[in-house]
Every structure is written in C-alpha cells, then in structure tokens.
Design a protein around this nucleic acid. Structure first.
Lengths: 122, 122
DNA sequence: CGGGATCCTCAATGATACTG
DNA sequence: CAGTATCATTGAGGATCCCG
C-alpha cells in the first residue's frame, strides 16, 4: 500500500484545497471523535458510524501526513499510540460545529429526537 | 442507473448527516459555481477544476433531490435549464466561506499568491 | 453547439478474515 | 487490541457518442 503522502490540490481555489484535505466521508468524523476525547484506535473504530478498519488506518495515516493529527506512543512492544489533534486539526473544530448546526437545522426532520452524538466542547 | 434519491444517513449525528449531503469532492464546488453566478451546465463544466460531465450530471440530479438547488427551464425543444440555489442551498454559503478561509490560512503555503478563484458575495 | 448519456478503466471503498 | 491482507463492489475520471 502506498504510504500516505500529501495529495496534490486540484486548483488554486481555497475551497477546493480545503475539500481536498477533509472533504470525504470519514476524515471529519474521525476528527470529531478525537476532539471528543477518543484517543485510541479501538475507541474510534467503535463509533456510531461503523468505519471499516482498513479505511480508519488509511485515514489516520493520511491525517498525520496532512498535519491534522499526531500519534503519541504510549507503550512499546507492541507499539501502541494515541492520536491527538494538532493546532491545524483544532482549527477545524469551528467548521465541524457549523456543519453540525447545519445538519441539525436541515436534516433532522424525519428522525426522532434521539440522542445527539456530536458534542464538541470548544 | 438508479435515479437520484435521498440517500440514507449513517447515524443520528448531525455532522454525519451534513457530510452525507455534501461531504464529497464535487458538490460544494458546484454549489460555489452556482452561488457565484454560473447558471448553466456549460458554465459549471468549464470551471477551473475540471469535473467530468457524467459526474456533473449525476451531482446536479442529486443536489436537486436533496433540495440544494432547483432547475428552471429557460427553453423547450430542446429542454434547457438553469440552476439556482434554494434557501437550503444558500444556507451553505457561510460554510463554504469558512472552508475557504481555512483553505487560505492552511493550504496556501506552497502556492504563489496567484488569483483566488473563490469569491462569494454574501 | 449545448446537455447530456454511455462505455471503459482504474482507483477507492467497504466487508470481513487474518495476524503480531 | 491495533492494525494488515484479501477480495467484491462502487465510484471517479476520461473519451466518445448521441440527440435536438
């Protein structure tokens, strides 16, 4: 598997650049989990939206390559790491909150007022 | 191809719901173009990031199904339509602007200060 | 010519099994 | 537990083709 590298950007448009970094189905959900305090692989894998493990591993690598998170080893043999947001990753929290507000306002018509699983503490 | 229908959501998380609507590589770029005044298929297809025509057609249908845009016929035989933002589509403009700001702040290090192709007028 | 539809190829995704 | 390997399926991205 080709190791994660910085991907090229499609154009000079900054919106396009942002989407090239986290405009996919999983990156922001992983970032949400880490921001919410989940630090280990298994915590994130156990989230409500069940992310396939191979994709989770690939995204964690890509997000490190993009500077959104960093991995901090907490034991060796076997090597185990925790994931933390970098400053760059933290800079996405307001965006996630705004997306969250939009989702609440526009996509909750049909669903019962069950639990809201997004709770980022600014 | 199954005609565009509202897709199911992965979970109750409103962030996830928002991403299920426009968390892909093209939807927001198309929305940006329409918001910036491009109304016809060819205008959007000619954008800086070259979107394949099959994807553009599919996205336009999906965005209508999701209520983000509406198509207004401006001639019949052959039927030709213009695309406009709905109120729901317009509600994404602040989000696009914030993404844009993020892209400028975090992803422009390497590129020369060439033109910025994103200019949404609030 | 504008607005697609269609076909093809290949990369990414997703499900699941497996391993250190 | 934290991933990697494998494999089927989907989707992206090009290149036409078609139809009015």
């Amino acid at each position: 598997m080709p190791d994660a590298a910085a991907r090229p950007l499609r154009s000079d448009c900054p919106l396009s650049a942002a989407l090239d970094r986290f405009g996919d189905r999983w990156t922001l959900l992983i970032l949400r989990d880490i921001a919410a305090g989940k630090r280990r692989y298994g915590d994130i894998a156990g989230s409500n939206e069940v992310i396939p493990t191979n994709i989770l591993a690939a995204r964690l690598k890509q997000m490190q390559a993009d500077g959104l998170i960093e991995s901090v080893p907490y034991q060796s043999r076997p090597v185990r790491s925790e994931y933390h947001l970098t400053a760059k990753g933290r800079s996405l929290i307001p965006i996630m909150q705004e997306l969250c507000r939009w989702g609440l306002a526009h996509e909750e018509e049909t669903r019962p007022p069950s639990g809201v699983f997004m709770m980022l503490k600014p």
